[in-house]
C-alpha cells in the first residue's frame, strides 16, 4: 500500500478516532487486497509508510461483499460498482475478504 494512502488514512484516524471508521476496499488484485488489509490492521508489512509498526486495527471490508452491497442504495451501487462487479471474479474477492485480519473474531 503506497505511503501517501497510508498518510491519508493515518490522518483520518488521528482526526476521527479508529472506533468510528471502517475501511471499504475496492481493489481487484488479491495480493494488493491482502497487503492493504494487513497494513490497515496490523501495520505496514513493508515497513516503509507511516503505518509501519502502527496497529490501527480498523475493520476492513470489500465493496463487493454481499453485506456491504446491501448497505448501499441499489441505484448508486449499480452506477458506481456495476461494471466492476460484472468484470471481476466476485467470489474470489469475497473469499479473499473472508481472510482479512480480524475476521475470525467477528
Amino acid at each position: 500500500m503506497d505511503p501517501e494512502n497510508q498518510d491519508r488514512i493515518k490522518s483520518l484516524v488521528d482526526e476521527h478516532g479508529a472506533d468510528d471508521l471502517v475501511v471499504v476496499l475496492g481493489a481487484a488484485d488479491l495480493e494488493a487486497l491482502e497487503v492493504a488489509a494487513e497494513t490497515l490492521t496490523l501495520g505496514d508489512p513493508a515497513y516503509v509508510g507511516s503505518l509501519a509498526g502502527v496497529q490501527l486495527g480498523l475493520p476492513v471490508v470489500h465493496i463487493l461483499e454481499e453485506d456491504v452491497k446491501e448497505q448501499v442504495d441499489a441505484g448508486v451501487y449499480d452506477e458506481q460498482v456495476g461494471l466492476l462487479e460484472m468484470t471481476l471474479d466476485v467470489d474470489q474477492v469475497r473469499r479473499a475478504a473472508e481472510k482479512f485480519p480480524g475476521r475470525d473474531e467477528t
Binding site: A28, D29, E31, A32, G82, L83, L84, M86, T87
Partner: peptide
C-alpha cells in the same frame, strides 16, 4: 507489480458496458 493486465481490464469494462446497455449478450463478454 500487482497492477494486473491493464488493457484486458479496459476491454472487460467496455464489454460490460455493452452488456448493460443490451448491445452485447452476457455470454459474449
Amino acid at each position: 507489480a500487482g497492477a494486473g493486465n491493464v488493457p484486458q481490464r479496459n476491454y472487460k469494462l467496455i464489454g460490460a458496458l455493452a452488456v448493460k446497455r443490451g448491445e452485447l449478450e452476457r455470454e459474449r463478454l
